[in-house]
C-alpha cells in the first residue's frame, strides 16, 4: 500500500500518525480517538450490562462464564492488593482493564484496513483519510485515564487521612527534622506526580511504539506479511499485559492512598 503516488515511507508513517481532528491549539479534538474509545467503552458496557441483566445464579451460559471469569479475575486482583472497603475500586479496575484491553486490541486491526474501508465508503482518497484506530496511542487518552486515577488518589488520600494527615504525609517523610520539611515536600511531590505520568506514559509508549513498528512493517512491501504476523503475535503479550499493568497500578496507588500511617 506504500506505492501510491511514490509516497515516501516517512510521509506514509506521518500520515498514519495524524489524527482525524478539528479545531486549533488546545481546542483541537481528535475525533478518531474519542470516537473509537467511546465506541469500545460502550461495547464493554453493553456486553457486561447485558450479562448483568440476564445473570442467572444457576448454570451460566458461555458469555456469562467469560464475563464472570474477567470479573472474578479483576475481583481477585483487587482483593489481594486492596484491603480497605471501597465499592468503587473493583468496578474502576474492571472498567480500566477491559476498556484499555479493547482499545489496545485495535492494534491488531491492520493499519491500512480502516482508512481503506472509509475511503471505499466515502469516496475520499486514502491520502486524505485520517484515522488512528488505537486510542491508547494518543497521549490524550492515556493521560485522561491517568488523571482520572490521580484525582481519585488525591481525593481518597484527603478523605481517609484528612487534609492535615495528607499534608503531614507529604512533608514529614522521609526526613524527620522540621528544617527538611520543604525538601520532603519536593521529594513527595515528585513521587506523587510520577504516578500519573508513569501510568500514562507507560501505556502510551508501549502502544505507540507497537503502532509505529506496525507502520514500519507496512512499508517493506510483500515481505510484511510474515513479519506483520510475528509482530501481531507478539502483541498477544503486550496488549493484555499493558491493560493488566494499568489496572494493577491503579489498585496499588489507590490502596496506598487508603493507608493511614
Amino acid at each position: 500500500m506504500s506505492a501510491s503516488a511514490e509516497l515516501t515511507s516517512q510521509d506514509y508513517i506521518k500520515h498514519h500518525l495524524t489524527n482525524l481532528s478539528t479545531g486549533e491549539g488546545f481546542m483541537t479534538v481528535h475525533w478518531d480517538t474519542l470516537g473509537w474509545s467511546v465506541f469500545l467503552g460502550l461495547v464493554f458496557l453493553f456486553i457486561f450490562r447485558s450479562v448483568a441483566v440476564k445473570a442467572t445464579t444457576g448454570v451460566p451460559g458461555k458469555l456469562q462464564c467469560a464475563v464472570e471469569m474477567i470479573v472474578e479475575f479483576v475481583g481477585d486482583s483487587v482483593k489481594s492488593t486492596f484491603h480497605g472497603h471501597n465499592p468503587l475500586i473493583a468496578p474502576l479496575a474492571l472498567t480500566i482493564f477491559v476498556w484499555v484491553l479493547l482499545m489496545n486490541s485495535m492494534d491488531w486491526v491492520p493499519v491500512d484496513l480502516l482508512p481503506w474501508i472509509i475511503s471505499l465508503v466515502s469516496g475520499i482518497e486514502m491520502s486524505n483519510v485520517y484515522m488512528r484506530a488505537v486510542p491508547t496511542t494518543d497521549p490524550n487518552m492515556t493521560f485522561a485515564l491517568a488523571i482520572g486515577v490521580f484525582i481519585l488518589i488525591i481525593y481518597y488520600s484527603i478523605k481517609v487521612k484528612g487534609v492535615g494527615g495528607f499534608i503531614k504525609e507529604l512533608t514529614t517523610q522521609p526526613f524527620g527534622h522540621w528544617s527538611l520539611y520543604p525538601v520532603n515536600f519536593i521529594l513527595e511531590m515528585v513521587t506523587m506526580l510520577a504516578r500519573p505520568l508513569s501510568l500514562a506514559l507507560r501505556l502510551f509508549g508501549n502502544l505507540y511504539a507497537g503502532e509505529l513498528i506496525f507502520l514500519l512493517i507496512a512499508t517493506i512491501g510483500l515481505y510484511q506479511l510474515p513479519v506483520h504476523f510475528l509482530w501481531a503475535a507478539f502483541h498477544l503479550l503486550i496488549i493484555p499485559l499493558q491493560a493488566f499493568i494499568f489496572m494493577m497500578l491503579t489498585i496499588v496507588y489507590l490502596s496506598l492512598a487508603h493507608e493511614d500511617h
Partner: peptide, 17 residues
C-alpha cells in the same frame, strides 16, 4: 499534543466507571 480530547476522554472515563 494535549488538547480538548483529554477532557472528552476524562468525561467518558468518569461516566463509564
Amino acid at each position: 499534543n494535549i488538547n480538548m480530547t483529554l477532557i472528552g476522554e476524562l468525561i467518558a472515563f468518569v461516566v463509564f466507571v
